[in-house]
Design a binder for these strands. Structure first.
Lengths: 216, 216
DNA sequence: CGCCCAATTGAACTGCATCAAGATTCGTGG
DNA sequence: CCACGAATCTTGATGCAGTTCAATTGGGCG
């Protein structure tokens, strides 16, 4: 995996300001491996488990009765998901990359642990705050009017999330269709936006999923 | 304002499954009152305070350099906001209703309290999870393709958040412009959607902000 | 009662969805 | 290593939904 192990060492405003997984939390988790497109949990499933991406990536989505799909979040290594206080999930989460590894924790045991282990409690709180931040940021993007801007802002947002340091390249883990379903526009429009951005010299495409930012 | 004065005291069937404000938390807070449109905190402000809506309503937003405004969340009585682990806010939060009352808590003291008082820790976690839920739900709405649907889904969503029991009426605390800035469409389109929904017999308007749902 | 801001409606233009072909890329097996 | 096939991605043409600009109406508060 290209992701460097995240240092907890101080730099304020890291993409993930994550402490390492608390030792206590690690002790109650077990690892599972998922294939591409395989559901980690389904819509309406009971929410009795907490999850963490160890390697690969996953996305939270909802399928509508009419076949439309909505993507509401993408999870990268280190991210906790399944954070809810409701008994059932509304969304599903599936692996994006093949061979995605997920650590699973029993909700009951995590909750008990959060009551006694400060590191675990802090980790959950921090991760929740980060999820809120991500969603708000994404809301800005999706709420933007023109499709051009949506796509560009999405790329910048995703670059900020994945890049360590000053690399102006970006490797997209997701497809054009995923981006479309995330931004509420058609896949064709996403393509055209990519083409336009390249023509305008904002980005360069090495491959369909390898992007370099030119001027910011 | 049509908003009835809201009691912090528990009422069955609350929209959020919130425990009452933990007694320990209450003890470290102080109350402030805000006028309509008055900022509770501003963009880039240091995030050293936590807030709770006691009465009235507030919204989180961001102003772009070009004058465009994005609304990412609305806070109703009982909601905690200012939940972040970053040093500075990215968004601002302002009062929507006139005379909105906000309880303010020092972040430092809340964090210390969360380490020793289980009720406070649980409350913060629960509120964070609810914020995540709200944002995901809203993402679904904003990510929908047609403006018609966006507006209708928004109304239903808001009705679910505010209504206690089986009342099919809805009193909107926010303007058409606010809705537009929340959904990423123009205010005119919001109006036309309202008109269409009324013509189609889905809703009835008593006043511009008093809505009744006909068939669901 | 009248003012002012919010909400509504109208008309013209434009950006995006949709349908329909092509062109790449990538995985798979020969 | 190359060839093949199936996704994925890209591009084109057309119609409609939504933006924009402009004017009018209506409701709420002084």
């Amino acid at each position: 995996m290209p992701n460097a192990p995240t240092e907890p060492t101080a730099k304020e405003d890291l993409p993930h300001p994550l402490a390492a997984e608390p030792i206590q939390l690690r002790s109650i988790g077990h690892l599972r491996r998922f294939r591409r497109e395989q559901d980690i949990y389904g819509q309406d499933e009971r929410s009795d488990t907490l999850y963490r991406v160890v390697s690969g990536s996953a996305c939270k989505y909802l399928m509508r009765a009419d076949g439309r799909r909505h993507l509401v979040d993408v999870y990268l290594p280190g991210d906790l998901f399944g954070l809810t206080c409701r008994a059932h999930h509304k969304f599903a989460v599936r692996a994006v990359a093949d061979g995605t590894q997920i650590a699973c924790y029993s909700r009951q045991r995590v909750e008990a642990l959060a009551g006694e282990d400060l590191a675990t409690a802090t980790e959950i709180r921090t991760q929740s705050f980060e999820a809120i931040r991500r969603l708000q940021e994404q809301m800005l993007i999706v709420g933007t009017m023109t499709a051009q801007e949506k796509v560009l802002e999405f790329l910048v947002y995703f670059h900020d999330r994945t890049s360590t340091g000053r690399d102006d390249r970006l490797a997209l883990p997701i497809s054009r269709y995923d981006i479309a379903d995330m931004l509420g526009i058609s896949a064709e429009t996403v393509c055209r936006a990519f083409t336009n951005l390249q023509e305008r010299g904002v980005i360069t495409l090495q491959g369909p999923r390898r992007i370099t930012f030119r001027r910011r």
